[in-house]
Design a protein around this nucleic acid. Sequence first.
DNA 1: AGAAATCATTAAGATATCTTAAGAAAGATT
DNA 2: AATCTTTCTTAAGATATCTTAATGATTTCT
Lengths: 189, 189
Amino acid sequence: MKEQLSKYLIRYANFNKLDLNLIYNTCSIQSYNKKDFLLKQNSVCKYKYFILEGLVRQYRVEDNGNENISVFGIENWWITNLDSFLNETGSINSIQALEKTTVLQITKTELEELYLKIPVLERVFRKITENMLIALQRKNEIFMKKNSKERYYNMLEQIPGFSQRVPQYMIASYLNITPEYLSDIRKNK
Amino acid sequence: MKEQLSKYLIRYANFNKLDLNLIYNTCSIQSYNKKDFLLKQNSVCKYKYFILEGLVRQYRVEDNGNENISVFGIENWWITNLDSFLNETGSINSIQALEKTTVLQITKTELEELYLKIPVLERVFRKITENMLIALQRKNEIFMKKNSKERYYNMLEQIPGFSQRVPQYMIASYLNITPEYLSDIRKNK
DNA sequence: AGAAATCATTAAGATATCTTAAGAAAGATT
DNA sequence: AATCTTTCTTAAGATATCTTAATGATTTCT
């Protein structure tokens, strides 16, 4: 557990043992069963989660009842509703475990204290955030300009093995198409 | 000029006069005429730009010749192709002035040196990047779930006065619809 | 194993949006 | 003012994707 986080962090900057311990000990570890919620729509997102193991989805239930998945989170990813976490407002979406999932979680206050104690962490989260922004920009590029079929095959390529871990209707939801139409796409391959 | 940047920066953290001077002097100032390019598609994005005055668009020309605008940049915004800037790869899009535009520009190397000399700047750009990520997530929410008409009226609301500064076909491009269809939407208000 | 629940497919008709092509309006340039 | 260029509108037919509803296949639970 501690190893896994350390290994992740030192990809971004140098840390000594003490710092790594402090970071790890500031987080609390938590396990969620399949279908458990890490965050519920409309409530404040209290934590930034580092996924040690498992799989989660971030999604929103629309007024008409439709579910709309914006992100899947897997091992070694941070997940949170950043808007809610930073501004302490109600979250527009939920985070739910799709498999048994173990995370390290840290509150905003805890994280801010860490920034003060370990300034280089500021750099690490700058870089992580930059990478997330780039990833989202790339995703956008695809969603804006590719049709459903291309988005589907792109996804299979980018995250192989994913279609085995997640039901097809959730993939459809992530791709922003109906399950019926995804079924069509697969048929007419 | 210096005032404008300083005023912007101190919204994010405390800086002393010396630091503010150093930051300002590390940037170079540059003016672009209408239609000039700050960045050309396929070339490496050498600068992060802070727009002092003016208006730019970030857009990509697709294989079929269509232009696709992803971002408009206005006063007091940073603009860059982050992927290209950080990874020093060819940019997938261009940045072009739509009005006479004055910017402060800084290279990756210069910025990295500043991070070392003024560690709190690391925090500032962490926060700026977080805010950009949140803004993009919000935009996504709208683009994924609202139809063209709703996106149009949302945009008018969010950035009022914008439709006066930018031709309608560019707004259509940003909204990811054809100019013809936008014309339709406006007619059937 | 059987029942219940969840998930995937099929098909027909509906809708949003695009494509093409032409003409009208507005703005820029001589 | 006249011409050229850019931008906007109109309209008809085409296409991608959705909606609904029903059935079939899997997985989960008892």
